[in-house]
Design a protein around this nucleic acid. Structure first.
Lengths: 238, 238
DNA sequence: TTTCCTTTGTGTACGCTGTATCGAGCGGAT
DNA sequence: ATCCGCTCGATACAGCGTACACAAAGGAAA
């Protein structure tokens, strides 16, 4: 009987590898793929490139992964498995730590924030663990389950949205060989100048000429995260 | 002199179309592309498909658009131009209206929330207008420009993150011909059951069996948005 | 009117992608 | 010794984005 492709990926992976002697394995595949994506970005991930990296024929990985979507899911789990979960903290510290931890994971693996829509849904064990941790952090505070999940998803949405933006900027910069915020703004200057010349954006223009933290991403991330957590605290009557 | 490809897209578009009699135009291209994407999703957008839709050879649109990235940017602007901006409201009502308006735009055009990273950065006039509107809503409240921009970007990050998730779920459902949340959960049941059988997610399991608003997306969206706005309000009163 | 130049759209082609399919070889159970 | 099932190799195909050279079409100048 061939591998049952209809079962969930995680169930398939759990069944003991029928024979332990093969040259390929899900782990080896995931590691190679993550290494390539870390070094050259998500668009470098190609079934052929992956096979080359593994020293194997183009179709070989398909024995372990039903297609590219499966591969991405495997990559997601591979990196999420390395995430540290906080324990024994209050709800706010927990959510904060989880958000910052996710951010750090995404800084380490820029492609995580650029996954195609399908892979964003990947319900991998690692992501389930993050969800569970968030929910338990909010448990026992008198919230109904819908609100608990809603709060978790809101924080997650913020993190994903913020990192998706940052990561897109990073990708653009490295693609254009820009290595600082100043170089980026120089590159974008003609476009911005054109917009500003229309006179439609006076407040934006004021920001451009007087802001001093344009490159402090961590400060920006924390600002929004803290606002969100403050608002959640309001809902918790604390 | 051929069209100057190095100038920003918006500057190029503004120069009067050299001759108004041609069969193709940026507007016609944008409309056709948006129509296809609305009806069949972003992955149906292909330079060849677009050309077919316009009754034209595959390479013809390249006269008006330097590549697929440019096309997506054009599409983004085409739909953002139809967004209504609130006027004369307080900061909170403005930000709320902007967020809800963006959400509605993304519900009308599901592909908006699935754009590839590059296109997410597109500084189109329509998106600039949203930014300007947000900033002016926050102006005159004693905030420094960095904080104003940080707040705008936080709300935007939340909206993008939340809609990116919803939109991915929608895409998955229509791809699998699922038409209700119940059908979706039935489809996912084997995977969820496998996760739950591990016993690692008791709180999640409790949510699954007792939650009653799993399909109320608007409620979920508003929950997070209101938390975020509440948190911003805290920052404004100090 | 004839000529010519610029713009607009056509045709063809290349290298790349994901992946279906078929066949070869090998290891372990019968 | 035989067979079977799994692993991996080779080949192939349709589809993608887009580079490039050419044809038609319209206005300006002669």
């Amino acid at each position: 009987m061939a591998t049952d492709r209809s079962a969930p990926l995680w169930e398939r992976l759990e069944r003991p590898a029928p024979v332990p002697r093969q040259t390929l394995s899900p782990q080896r595949i995931a590691m190679a793929a993550v290494a390539v994506a870390d070094a050259e970005g998500l668009e470098a991930i190609t079934m052929r490139r992956l096979a080359t990296e593994l020293g194997v024929a183009p179709m070989a990985p398909y024995r372990y992964v039903s297609g590219k979507d499966d591969l991405l899911e495997l990559m997601v789990e591979h990196v999420y498995a390395g995430m540290r979960l906080p324990g024994g903290l209050g709800w706010r510290e927990s959510l904060h730590a989880l958000a910052v931890g996710t951010r750090e994971l995404m800084l380490e693996h820029r492609w995580l924030a650029q996954l195609p829509p399908q892979s964003k849904l990947a319900l991998t064990p690692g992501r389930m663990a993050v969800a569970e941790q968030s929910l338990t952090a909010l448990d026992g505070l008198g919230l109904d389950p819908d609100t608990m999940m809603g709060i978790f998803r809101s924080v997650d949405a913020y993190v994903q949205g913020a990192m998706s933006y940052d990561s897109a900027v990073d990708a653009f910069m490295s693609e254009q060989s820009l290595s600082s915020g100043d170089e980026l703004r120089t590159e974008l200057a003609p476009l911005m100048a054109w917009h500003m010349r229309t006179g439609h954006y006076p407040t934006y223009q004021h920001y451009l000429s007087t802001a001093t933290r344009k490159d402090d991403r961590r400060w920006q991330f924390d600002l929004g995260l803290n606002c969100l957590l403050d608002g959640i605290a309001v809902r918790l009557n604390m």
